[in-house]
């Protein structure tokens, strides 16, 4: 090795390079344009009004201002939500099938006074009429209804996940560039996967309700189709990135693509596959509570119905049930995860 001396310029040589400031007027201009854009979109999304209303609400809570629309609205709903509905009551004369000697379990028949404003056809005036009606009371009837709906939600989530796994398995095979039999099958599968993934569950469910009617079918299909897109993409990418060595060993003896996939790739990617599928199940459990809002079955459908009829005490019961459900699932999945890893 030869030692080169470090070149030092002669004293007095003018410096031909310099270190500029970290930002210039151009950066300032960009910042101003971004700020203007933020202000514009902020106004369009009513962020200014939001700040004012929230300030008012906080002010009222602290006793500083007198009135707040937000607090008024929330407290009105809050009052009608308490206490959460537990019992279920039905008018007996609307139940022609009812056998008074063999009432459903835990239920009893009760007489109630009911006051109603009725139009008197002779005087054409509203008159308060009090009548006594018989009602069938189920003390924990509504809890049971919510429980059944919650169970349906769970089933929708599980079937949606099953459907997603079944659909995505062939999709993943075709969407893996090193296993897809033809160029066009690859393109087609990739396109399908992206399409499925880009369709939000709620919107898909909205259309499927039109096709299959209200109920869990639309929910299961909506969850399954969207998740199939997700799983198809991630399964395929794991196939593509799998260790090449075992695949080469099987290719070398002429095992064929499908068998190579089964014996050289799938065993290697099982941990990732389990993780993706668990994520999808988790996601579907949450989404299944929501797709009912558009009529696709489960607890959401019950929630929407009660909300639309202003029965906020029933809504309260449902919200508590959803909270407990998701909380329990979180605990469960955390425990399973701790055991698996």
């Amino acid at each position: 090795m030869t030692n080169k001396p470090i070149p030092v310029p002669a004293p007095g040589t003018p410096l031909s390079w310099h270190l500029p400031h970290p930002y210039s007027t151009r950066h300032l201009l960009v910042v101003i344009v971004l700020l203007a854009l933020l202000l514009l979109t902020g106004h369009r999304t009513e962020m200014d009004r939001m700040v004012i209303m929230t300030t008012q609400a906080v002010g009222q809570l602290l006793g500083l201002s007198s009135d707040s629309q937000v607090v008024r609205g929330l407290s009105r709903v809050g009052q009608s939500m308490w206490p959460p509905a537990i019992t279920e009551m039905e008018e007996v004369n609307r139940l022609p099938e009812l056998d008074r000697d063999r009432l459903p379990m835990f239920s009893y028949v009760e007489k109630r006074q009911q006051t109603e404003q009725r139009m008197n056809l002779e005087t054409l005036q509203l008159e308060a009429q009090t009548e006594t009606i018989e009602v069938l009371v189920k003390p924990v009837g509504y809890l049971w209804t919510v429980f059944v709906k919650m169970l349906e939600t769970l089933e929708i989530a599980i079937w949606g996940t099953l459907l997603a796994v079944l659909l995505s398995a062939p999709l993943a095979y075709l969407a893996a560039s090193n296993y897809s039999p033809r160029r066009w099958t690859y393109t087609l599968a990739r396109g399908t996967v992206s399409f499925l993934r880009s369709m939000p569950e709620l919107i898909v469910a909205l259309f499927l309700v039109l096709a299959y009617g209200f109920g869990p079918i639309a929910g299961v299909l909506a969850l399954g189709l969207h998740a199939a897109g997700f799983l198809g993409k991630f399964y395929a990418e794991d196939i593509e990135n799998a260790d090449k060595k075992p695949q080469e060993a099987l290719e070398a003896i002429g095992a064929g693509k499908l068998k190579t996939l089964c014996y050289g790739v799938l065993p290697q990617v099982v941990p990732q596959y389990v993780a993706y599928t668990a994520y999808i199940l988790d996601r579907n459990l949450r989404m299944a509570t929501v797709v009912g809002l558009v009529g696709a079955g489960g607890i959401g459908q019950e929630l929407k119905g009660r909300f639309d009829m202003f029965q906020y005490d029933h809504v309260a019961t449902i919200l508590i049930a959803i909270f407990l459900f998701v909380f329990a699932l979180d605990q469960l999945s955390a425990r399973i995860r701790a055991k698996l890893i």
Binding site: P246, A249, L250, I253, A255, Y263
Partner: peptide, 18 residues
């Protein structure tokens, strides 16, 4: 070039795949 997460038995049987 074994399929490391697969059992020894299946790795040997894989030699018969063709």
């Amino acid at each position: 070039n074994l399929t490391t997460r697969m059992s020894v038995a299946n790795n040997v049987l894989a030699g018969l795949l063709p």
